[in-house]
Design a protein around this nucleic acid. Sequence first.
DNA 1: CCAAAAGTGTTCGCCGTACACCCATGA
DNA 2: TCATGGGTGTACGGCGAACACTTTTGG
Lengths: 231, 231
Amino acid sequence: MTRFYPLEDRQLLAVDCVIFGFDNQDLKLLLIRRNMEPASGMWSIMGGFPRHDESLDNAAVRVLKQLTGLVDVYLEQLYAYGNVERDPGERVVSVAYYALIRIEDYDKHLVREHDAHWSRISDIPELVFDHRVMVDKALRRLRRKARIQPIGFELLPDTFTLPQLQALYEAIYQKELDKRNFRKKILSMGLLDKLEEKDKTSSKKGAWLYRFNPEKYQEALANGFYFSVDV
Amino acid sequence: MTRFYPLEDRQLLAVDCVIFGFDNQDLKLLLIRRNMEPASGMWSIMGGFPRHDESLDNAAVRVLKQLTGLVDVYLEQLYAYGNVERDPGERVVSVAYYALIRIEDYDKHLVREHDAHWSRISDIPELVFDHRVMVDKALRRLRRKARIQPIGFELLPDTFTLPQLQALYEAIYQKELDKRNFRKKILSMGLLDKLEEKDKTSSKKGAWLYRFNPEKYQEALANGFYFSVDV
DNA sequence: CCAAAAGTGTTCGCCGTACACCCATGA
DNA sequence: TCATGGGTGTACGGCGAACACTTTTGG
């Protein structure tokens, strides 16, 4: 291949992926035990190296699939970390992503192979290099976005109850919300379809199941609507 | 140097910088004529290549200084662009930044050397590669941030009048604002020091000069204050 | 029958928005 | 004296926030 920029330094590039899940109680983070030097054995987020013929986004998708078996998940670029000394092994520029997955869907076998585990966000162990900085940035991004875009649903099963949805927001913001205000706000947006079915796993009375309707959201957007949840 | 990751592809990495300025009328963008192949002679934003011993942030600072002579300016990372085909010359991953500068301060000589010019954001010429995407993202970021953080002042001289500040917000959001509401909101935040001096360059009566007070802002932040301008 | 979670409405205060006239001054 | 831009206050409506009781049903 012709090289147009032959004099410039080539750099080692990585992608790292902060993976969030929700188990109906806590917001969680999928961490692996790093299996290469330096810092082998330390807790780390999942990462990999983009190939020369692979976009950053595709590299992130591949990394996520390697660990979880999942494709078609919410995945968003966070930030590029470019300090010279961030990886003590060698100068590596890392582009961080974060993903929101449905915690029941991931491939348990793959996760076991990678020596990974789910960690509560209130209880994150020491992480390798600057991964804690990435995680904190991912959390801030998630907290900002979940207020103004319907991305919370990416962390829930296809159908869910309003108490479940509220618990999710409470887990994200680590804050108790008022039940009446929350339901009023969510339902007033008109983005949820109510099913004729109750979930009885967490109460005798049972709670109605709902499903997020992306078409309604798109149509509302086109009419100048803005998603917003008060937290 | 020891290489810990010897098998991975090295990539060519660039930084590109969207530079905003305000001339009391329009929000403007500093564009250069690209002087290397491919696409030599096309309009482009300023860019460069991070050295192997240089952080991304420092590379962006260096690139900005090369074109404007300025250091100590507002500079924020935007996004990493990693499509394989984004630069037809060769696969290059580019980390984009945006800068807010005081348009009277830049080094005219350097800018002339780079064959650069200021373009109104409502009138941007065709740009090389995916630079237009970067510019659009920078504009969205600026518009989001200027509402909730006092970064607009980075585009104004040290002292400025309220009509000037309002004109700035109107230029950023391309929207006329109500004079009374704007002044009420800005002054109610208590972040501006009023000088005992008027600017008479744009009216006979003259408008009072103000200065943004970062200490007051920091103190307010510590007390749970949130900056916000309604647009 | 009772414990435990689901579901439901109203009031208040603040803030964003709309809106019109007087002031100061140089030419 | 007049044209030009600078400066000022009020009233209304909507929305976020606070708050307590009834319903359902399995055990």
